[in-house]
Amino acid sequence: MLRFAHMEYLWGLLIVPAFLLLFIVVTEWKKRAIASLGDKKVVNQMMPEVSLSRPLLKFILFTIAFAFLIIAAADPQIGSKMEEEKRKGADLMILLDVSNSMLAQDLPPSRLENAKQAIAQLIDNLHSDRIGIIVFAGEAYVQLPMTTDYSAAKLFLNTINTNMVPTQGTAIGAAIDMGMRSFDFKDGTGKSMIIITDAENHEDDAVAAAKNATEKDVMVNVIGIGSAEGAPIPVYQNGKQIGFHTDSTGKTVVSKLDENMGKEIAAAGNGTYVRATNANSGLNIVMDQINKVQRKTIDSKSFKDYEDRFQFFLAIAFVLLIIEFFISNRKSLRLSGLKLFEVKKS
Rank of each mutant, 00 (worst) to 15 (best):
R3C: 05
A5Y: 13
H6K: 09
M7R: 04
Y9W: 08
Y9I: 04
L13Y: 07
L14C: 13
A18C: 15
F19W: 04
L21V: 12
L21F: 14
F23C: 06
I24S: 09
I24V: 12
W29N: 10
K31H: 14
K31V: 11
A33N: 15
A35K: 14
D39K: 05
K40A: 15
V43N: 05
P48R: 06
P48F: 10
P55S: 07
L56Q: 11
F59G: 00
I60D: 00
T63H: 00
A65E: 00
I71Y: 01
I71L: 03
A73E: 08
G79Q: 08
K81L: 14
M82K: 15
M82Q: 15
E85S: 15
M93I: 15
M93R: 02
L96I: 06
D97A: 07
S99K: 08
S101W: 06
L107K: 00
E113K: 14
Q121D: 15
N125Y: 06
S128T: 15
I131N: 01
V135A: 07
A140G: 01
Y141L: 12
V142W: 07
P145G: 14
T147R: 08
T148K: 09
N161P: 03
N163V: 10
M164E: 09
D177K: 09
D184Q: 07
D184E: 11
T189K: 12
G190R: 10
M193S: 04
D198E: 08
A208W: 07
A210P: 00
K211V: 04
A213W: 04
T214G: 09
E215V: 03
N221F: 04
V222L: 13
I225N: 02
I225D: 01
A228E: 15
A228Q: 13
A231F: 07
I233W: 03
Q241P: 02
I242W: 14
G243E: 12
S248F: 11
E259R: 11
K263A: 05
G271T: 05
T272P: 05
A276G: 02
T277N: 06
A279N: 03
G282W: 05
N284S: 10
I285Y: 13
Q289F: 06
V293I: 15
R295E: 05
R295Q: 11
K301Y: 11
D305M: 14
N329M: 10
N329I: 09
K339H: 11
L340I: 03
V343P: 04
K345I: 10
S346W: 12
